[in-house]
């Protein structure tokens, strides 16, 4: 069972490391303790605190789908002290994980609907969890569209999975890179996510839009979705404020009265509009 001391992480062994893009890696993690592995459950949208003991903890989402049992995956960009230490870990090493924390995407409510995923750069990981969750329960949903963009072709993460989604007949994938980020053999779109979305979006009728990306992308994507007829309550995103504890005590991540770690990280646009601009 999980430790009653809320600060104690699970010990997880790195089973596989994938280099996704420059400075971006995915870890597949397995529980050291079998009982903990059996008891562990999570849902799409939740996150955790990943750590190297002696260095510190860092917050990112669980990037694998809850339908894939026996392991979790995380994808992170090397930026600070902890992510640099994580990046130098090797397959077989043991790292710490606390979680899962936070709320989830209401996937049960989305049954029978079309799903439109819109992601930018390193924000595909939180969405990848939902995408695979939906694909693994494909019969629950109607059309699935993914619009994904990055600054350059090299910055696109999960290249193997993008290739797989591109060939699947039950998924429509639109990839784009910022102007100047394309390579000579690039076959996708060139342009910023909001403008590509405007051309490529499916009908808003019976469709849920899930948006993850840098704040600037989100800012310009919401108006496009509204223009396309999406209602506020049918648009979802995640907030990523700075966190330390993940369980509503350290006092960093709140936006007004709402704790991103406990009340989020998933918010509908409708809920987000009620919050003060503190994120």
């Amino acid at each position: 069972m999980s430790n009653p001391n809320i600060y104690i992480p699970y010990l997880m062994r790195i089973e596989k490391i994938t280099l996704e893009a420059p400075g971006v890696k995915t870890f597949r993690l397995k529980f050291e303790n079998e009982q903990e592995a059996d008891e562990f459950t999570f849902k799409a949208g939740q996150f955790g605190e990943y750590s190297i003991v002696g260095v510190g903890e860092s917050t990112f989402c669980i990037a694998s789908s809850p339908t894939r049992k026996g392991y979790i995956e995380c994808t992170f960009r090397q930026t600070g002290k902890v992510t640099n230490a994580l990046a130098s870990a090797e397959e077989g090493d043991v790292i710490g994980f606390r979680g899962p924390y936070g709320n989830t995407f209401p996937m049960d409510e989305w049954k029978g609907k079309n799903l439109l995923f819109i992601a930018g750069g390193i924000a595909l990981p939180p969405m990848r969890c939902v995408i695979w969750n939906a694909l693994d329960l494909r019969e629950n949903f109607k059309d699935i569209t993914i619009v994904y963009g990055a600054r350059t072709v090299a910055d696109l993460v999960y290249k193997d999975e993008l290739a797989e989604w591109r060939t699947r007949s039950d998924v429509r994938l639109v990839t784009t890179v910022d102007p100047g980020g394309e390579t000579p053999d690039w076959k996708g779109e060139v342009g910023f996510v909001p403008s590509v979305l405007e051309k490529a979006a499916p009908s808003s009728e019976n469709t849920i839009a899930i948006v993850c990306g840098p704040p600037i992308m989100i800012k310009f994507t919401f108006p496009v979705l509204e223009k396309l007829g999406f209602k506020e309550e049918n648009i979802y995103t995640t907030l990523e404020n700075r966190m330390k504890c993940g369980f509503g005590k350290c006092g960093r991540c709140n936006v007004g009265e709402v704790y991103v770690c406990k009340d989020g990280p998933v918010f509908s646009y409708e809920a987000l509009k009620l919050l003060p601009a503190e994120y």
Partner: peptide
């Protein structure tokens, strides 16, 4: 006031994780 930071301190192969006061 109870906001805090979480910090690791390593001394060779041993170390501690600490909960330290912090301020908004």
């Amino acid at each position: 006031c109870s906001c805090f930071d979480i910090q690791d301190e390593a001394h060779g192969h041993k170390g501690t994780r600490l909960r330290c006061w912090d301020s908004c």
